[in-house]
Amino acid sequence: MDTASAPPLAAPLDIAFDYTRSLGPVLGRFMTGLRDRRVLGARTADGRVHVPPLEYDPATHAPVTELVPVPPTGTVTSWTWTDQPLDGQPLDRPFGWALIRLDGADTALLHAVDAGTRESMRTGMRVRIRWAAERSGHIRDIACFEPDPGPPRASGSATGGDPATASDLDTSGDPDTSNGAGTSGDLSTSGELVTGITTPIRLSYTHTTSAEESRYLHALSEGRLLGQRCPACRKVYVPPRVCPADGVPTEEEVPVHDHGTVTTFCVVNVPFAGQRLDPPYVVAQVLLDGADIPIPHLILGAAGEVRMGMRVAAVWRDPATWSTTPENIAHFRPTGEPDAPYESYQEHL
């Protein structure tokens, strides 16, 4: 295959990690409330109620200490529509995003509205919380909002907000008792205070190599190691890269041997998640013959004997399994040759 003109190699790169965050006194109580199907707002010195709560008063900069309950009903102040939900969003069918000012609150909360159709969404529409069946003290304890078919609520607000959206905190008239829990002003919780949240993050990328990296990977699939020489300092890089000393692309391709010298090494004794070998084993920097920068790799078959200057050779996997990956080399093994003199690798440490 003509690899010189082939498009650069690309491959999917999926990463996933869980963010764990501690909450502090305000968000801790807010999340605890959600777990117990109640919404708490933060009252600042000017009397305004913030949902979601603020930890510090933006005017006085004092810590917020007063949390007040608000009902699970509110008014949409802005909205948009999502035809094709993205991974991780609250609903897996078309839904509306909305800014929602809960009754008795002066600020708006961002969340999803399960409205069915775009035509059902409008500014000023009344909505109420649909609680998640399983709740842990997390913003996702609110599964989403849904249109509120309830009768118009009594007017009057604790904070003198917009009369069109304000409502009495008393939710005794709520026809759906499952939505009315915990808004009577009773701030006691039924369990332990939530002190932290875990948010899983999953992201998918397409990782794209450079043309030089692609040629290196194609050569690997043929059992060859390819370096590139910097036109300025004449050093050979494996894998190829823009010369980090001179900032110029390396253009001249240089075949590199699969024998080399251990410049430095460490013995891995500690187990970790995803580990492929049972410790102890040796990871070393190997300076391939003809290259000016070492590569990291495994040294197997020499437990306790690996040393600086040791001569090693690549152990290739079965050629039938080769592809465009450095994993074609399983590990390195000692060759038994005399050690390389220190002067031959000292500038690569």
Binding site: L23, T80, L86, D87, G88, Q89, P90, A98, L110, I197
Partner: peptide
């Protein structure tokens, strides 16, 4: 906000749309 907004994955175009409608 990593506590009350990001865990819902609101995409940047939708967030801008909320501003446009306002």
């Amino acid at each position: 906000d990593p506590y009350v907004a990001a865990p819902l994955w609101p995409d940047s175009v939708s967030v801008a749309a909320l501003q446009a409608r306002l």
